[in-house]
Simulated assay, not measured.
Amino acid sequence: MSQLVTGDAVVLGLQPARLPSRTMALVIDLVVVVGGYLLVSVVLLSTVLSLGTATADAVGVALLLLVLVGVPIAVETLSRGRSLGKLVFGLRVVRADGGPIRFRHALVRGAVGFVEILLTAGSVACVASLVSAEGRRLGDVFGGTLVVRERMPVTASAPLPPPPPWIAGEFAQLDLSRVPDRLWLAARQLLGRLEQLDQGVAWSMSARLANDVMASVGVPAPQGMPPAAYLAALVAERQRREAARVFGGPPVQPAPPPVQAPWPPVQAAPVEAVPPREIPERPGEAPRAGGFTPPA
């Protein structure tokens, strides 16, 4: 995974969980789930055994899938990626872009995990985690998820700053599907730590990241808009669309552009924004309209 590094060598990224902690968390989850399965199966099968062997076998298979597959999926969905074992060891399952998982992510993890963990005694999951640089098993690869450490010996990140109210809905018509997950993750991490960074470093990193996101979106940023505000507006718009898909709701109509952009001046910026169509991205590349320029 690509990571942004500040001038003080501070990495803005999530800390992937290692195999030992994931294994111990899995052991706790398996003890609870298998113990519950054995207890429920003894009680339930004893009541349906009088109905015939075929009925008892059908109930046994349904109970196996319900408890060993359905329960972990339900727990991860309702707890946003924190099972009992992960809660004990301070772990959480998140999306590849750092956001909370949904039902479809937990479903893929649970379905693949039944094969690579239960049917193979965890050997496939162990090999996949050792091969992956981020410790991801096959369920994480197919589900687009990552198990990270929540308990870190650092200051907690600040919440994402909200976008300015006068641009609400301005990016509602943009196509954000072409922005890769690594850029969303970097944007979330950077916006959450802007208050902890030097203003010059924050401007430089925001400008570089905003240029990369702008290249994926294909639409230049509004004239005079600071790069951090541009990133915050796009992240908020993406979160709004995800919430609308899950919970429903009327679409947000784009707001008309203001007559004069009321962006507050950046007092401590080490450089000034270069006018559009005058910013070369890299040596040998054509200038890009509406971009931001980091300090040299």
Rank of each mutant, 00 (worst) to 15 (best):
V75M: 14
V75A: 08
E76T: 00
R80M: 06
R82I: 10
L84T: 08
L84Y: 02
L84M: 14
G85D: 04
K86H: 15
K86I: 04
L87A: 15
R92D: 13
R95C: 08
A96Q: 10
G99S: 15
I101L: 10
I101P: 01
I101S: 04
R102H: 10
H105N: 15
A106W: 00
L107E: 05
V108G: 07
R109A: 14
G110Q: 07
A111Y: 02
V112Q: 15
V112F: 08
G113T: 07
E116G: 05
E116D: 11
E116I: 06
I117C: 06
T120I: 09
A121Y: 12
S123Y: 06
A128R: 00
A128Q: 00
S129H: 07
L130I: 07
A133M: 12
E134F: 07
G135K: 01
G135A: 10
R137P: 13
G139I: 07
D140C: 05
F142P: 04
G143D: 01
T145D: 13
L146G: 05
V147Y: 02
V148E: 04
R149I: 00
P153F: 01
P153S: 09
V154Y: 09
V154H: 07
A156L: 13
A156M: 09
S157P: 13
A158F: 12
P159K: 04
P161I: 00
P162Y: 10
P163K: 01
I167F: 02
A172N: 02
A172G: 00
A172K: 03
L174N: 11
L176H: 04
S177A: 11
S177L: 00
R178W: 08
R178Q: 14
V179M: 10
D181N: 10
L185G: 09
L185C: 07
A186I: 01
A187G: 15
R188Y: 04
R188E: 08
Q189P: 00
Q189T: 04
L191R: 00
G192I: 10
G192K: 03
G192S: 15
R193K: 09
R193E: 14
L194H: 02
Q196E: 14
Q196C: 04
D198L: 07
Q199S: 12
G200S: 14
A202R: 05
S204C: 06
M205N: 10
A207V: 12
A207T: 12
R208S: 15
L209N: 08
A210R: 03
D212G: 05
